[in-house]
Amino acid sequence: MTKYTYTGAWPVAPTPFHDDGTLDLDGMRRALDCIVDQGADGICILANFSEQFLLSDAERETLTRLCLEHAGGRVPMIVTISHFATPIVVERARLAKALGARAVMMMAPYHGALLKGTPEQTFEQFQRVGEVGIPIMIQDAPLSGVDLSVPLLVRMAREIEMVKMFKIESIGAATKLRRLITEGGEAIECPFDGEEGITMLADLDAGAKGTMCSAMVTEHIRAVVTDHLKGDRQAALAGYQRLLPAVNHENRQCGFRAAKAAMVEGKVFKSEFCRHPIPPLSPETRAELIDHLRPLDPIAMKWGL
């Protein structure tokens, strides 16, 4: 069984649109190039911060093909494949594998507030994807409304060979990560956190080896993880405290619109458009975000200047 030791910062790539709401495919290529230049250890596409819930199936396939081809092996790529229907998830996994993705990421099966897979159905869906033969990152996210208990996660890690990575972004992520690592032992190969890195220091202290952040300040997020992994917690603490105002504003006020605003500032792509019913950032919220980002001098805000 292959062991995986992925660490560092694995940002979610934003999905650029033109002002008329159509996909900006050149902007997508430029966003990937910018993230590579940020020093990302890997890139995730079609995740919630990629606005996956606003994309058609045909657009998902277009973006999957474009992103994996354009990345060209420069960094490992994770493709998000979440869906309530197991056959659809399996087909998405097959496509990702065929196109050279390093792994897939998926939430537990859910649809809306009330259609949720049971623990056994969740296990079975991950098991079916595991049969495709591509590594899986389990995304434990509040958005699904599904409680992925530590015993269930440990069972999947031990009984489904392709379950390799864990993105824990539920409430109390550090406590859950610590318990998952303790109870799962060697079966927990790549524990990560999410939520833009807002709880990153506590999660690293709990044993996380990486974080799936946004693409707003990837290079700074990565520096915190790197410092912590090499044992320099004071440097990690200082870096985290420096980042926290911007990351907090992103997490609590902007969501996925923050990375788009930063990249438009840096002329990575042209439009911050988000499809209805997502509203644009208010001018005040956007201005506050940029004020938080300027002292950090992020690559995203100067890449295309």
Rank of each mutant, 00 (worst) to 15 (best):
V132K: 12
V132Q: 08
I134M: 10
I134F: 10
P135S: 03
P135W: 02
I136F: 03
I136L: 10
M137R: 04
M137F: 12
Q139S: 14
Q139H: 13
D140S: 14
D140C: 13
A141V: 15
P142T: 06
P142Y: 07
P142R: 09
S144Q: 08
G145D: 07
G145W: 04
D147A: 13
D147N: 14
D147P: 00
L148Y: 01
L148S: 05
L148N: 13
L148R: 07
L148M: 15
S149V: 08
S149W: 06
S149C: 04
S149I: 03
S149H: 11
V150Q: 05
P151F: 02
L152A: 05
L152C: 04
L152S: 00
L153I: 14
L153H: 01
L153P: 00
V154S: 02
R155F: 06
R155Q: 13
M156C: 05
M156Q: 07
M156K: 09
A157K: 03
A157D: 06
R158E: 12
E159N: 07
E159A: 05
E159T: 14
I160K: 09
E161V: 10
E161M: 02
M162P: 06
M162V: 00
V163I: 12
V163W: 12
F166V: 04
K167W: 03
K167E: 12
K167T: 03
K167A: 06
I168V: 15
E169R: 03
S170K: 13
S170W: 10
S170H: 09
S170M: 14
I171P: 07
I171W: 11
A173F: 05
A174S: 15
A174N: 13
T175M: 13
T175Y: 11
T175L: 14
K176Y: 04
L177C: 09
L177D: 09
R178M: 11
R178C: 10
R178D: 12
R179H: 11
R179K: 15
R179A: 12
L180T: 00
L180K: 01
E183W: 03
E183K: 04
E183S: 01
G184E: 03
G184T: 10
G184I: 08
E186Y: 09
E186K: 15
A187L: 03
A187E: 03
A187F: 05
I188T: 05
E189L: 05
C190W: 06
P191W: 04
P191G: 07
F192K: 11
D193C: 15
G194R: 02
E196H: 15
G197V: 05
G197D: 01
I198E: 08
I198S: 04
I198Q: 06
T199E: 14
T199N: 14
T199R: 13
M200A: 11
M200G: 09
L201F: 12
L201W: 00
A202C: 01
A202M: 10
D203E: 14
D203H: 00
D203S: 11
D205T: 13
D205R: 15
A206L: 07
A206Q: 04
A206R: 09
G207L: 04
G207K: 04
A208H: 07
A208W: 09
K209C: 08
K209Q: 14
G210S: 05
G210V: 05
G210L: 02
T211E: 02
T211Y: 04
M212E: 04
M212Y: 03
M212T: 13
